[in-house]
Nucleic acid binder design. Structure first.
Lengths: 246, 246
DNA sequence: ACAAAAGTGTTGTAAATACACCCATGC
DNA sequence: GCATGGGTGTATTTACAACACTTTTGT
């Protein structure tokens, strides 16, 4: 798998904030870069015959093994100073030791995407420029490369805003899940506690859930009911929005 | 004013949906292109030392004469087929008759911006590739070049969504305006009638308006009060959002 | 039997909606 | 004086927020 730069549009890159949900925590998929050993968002470039959405889909298939990932562009990052290379990488570039790195020695405008995946179905794979791919908890990750911390922060801000008028969870939770799990997802994104009873009433009023007969057993304490998303209503809510704010 | 393509980042362009409000109608600034005589959104390219926001600001200063225009990127348009040239333009390009048009014979990813301006303060100016610049009413404009109709539509959709949690009007209305005028602006964007009395109560509850002593005279019928925006509260609302939806 | 989590219900307040009435202005 | 638009007010419904009690489960 070589890296052919002449397939790509110049000046344009993309970075993906891939969210997963596990152990009641919001996680992001990160890569550990060669040479600089910094952590970075998975990213890539746009082939000459691709839309940016197609490019992001291709990149994320390579990094996660998954097809049909839910993703959405949310902002373009274009500060002229954003692409300043890490000194360690710059050294390698200038030494000529690794010619495929030459490509990085230009200015990129990066299109930010966020994506939702089922944590349990992802098999993280590093790319040509990284030697490790791992899930990190939002709260516990270390600093990221270049402006990637900013990109992640902006993705979270966008998410928080969209939570007011769009449903979330279908792409992040397993097929069957409990109300407390869904609530934890909302609480993690909003970074605040919600009232259990009011949350349930509200989310049910959207009619995007089917209550199942089954309960989730095994955990300590009273076994909660399982729910699944009502796909028809969920997708309709994605298009037409919900009502007021949280 | 020549056109130096080597100042620009390749593959990247930007298109601006410039909104103005006049005669109780929402207007867009459009250019009439040379050769093809199609109408187009004002657009441009990104210099090698600019952010895309700086580039859009520069472009709009040239097209409107205004500094400090309120603008915001809202979406990247990147369908590989979007930049297909109009046959009339393609002929000119291939004839070699106008070398500055060569630049257009490549694929661009375009960053969509929307902008709000005070209609009365704008002096529309065409660019190197257009021979006319005019305001057109949203409802009455003819079809636009390439995917520009789609871009305009997406800008409107974005506006409608943002209306739910952000104030609007400061950049579109004159310094002093009446409640019915502000309401018309909302109604035009939302494309539906709102109740006069409930609108007033709601918008006042946001505390973004100062009621003035003066009334607007001259029109037929009872003279309405004038209002101005409370800039402190308005900007705060822009950052922190309002409450529920319309 | 107890602690902790989950199911279900009530109640007060605020906001959204749907109206009605009176007042100014130009013709 | 009358049509039209504008200012102001109220009653009803709906949504939100705060809070209490009961039930189930593992230890």
């Amino acid at each position: 798998m070589s890296f052919k730069t002449d397939n790509y549009l110049e000046s344009v890159s993309l970075d993906c904030v891939v969210f997963g949900f596990h152990d009641n925590q919001l996680k992001v998929l990160l890569l550990s870069m060669k040479y600089s050993h910094e952590w970075a968002l998975p990213g890539g470039f746009v082939c000459k015959d691709e839309s940016v959405e197609q490019a992001a889909t291709r990149v994320l298939k390579e990094r996660t093994g998954l097809d049909n990932i839910f993703l959405k562009q949310f902002k373009v990052f274009s500060d002229p100073e954003r692409s300043v290379l890490n000194p360690a990488v710059k050294d390698v570039v200038e030494s000529g030791e690794n010619t495929s790195l030459e490509w990085f020695n230009q200015r990129f405008i990066s299109i930010g995407f966020y994506a939702f995946v089922d944590f349990t179905k992802v098999v993280p794979k590093p790319d040509n420029f990284s030697d490790n791919a791992e899930w990190k908890s939002i709260g516990e990750k270390e600093a990221l490369m270049m402006d990637h911390d900013f990109i992640l922060q902006e993705a979270l801000n966008t998410l928080r805003e969209q939570l007011n008028y769009q449903p979330i969870g279908y792409n992040l939770l397993p097929d069957k899940f409990t109300m407390p799990e869904l609530q934890k997802l909302y609480e993690t994104i909003l970074d605040k506690k919600l009232d259990r009873r009011n949350f349930q009433r509200r989310i049910l009023s959207f009619n995007i859930l089917n209550k199942l007969e089954e309960r989730k057993t095994g955990g300590a304490h009273k076994s909660p009911f399982l729910y699944e998303f009502n796909l028809v209503n969920y997708k309709n809510a994605l298009k037409n929005g919900l009502t007021g704010g949280w």
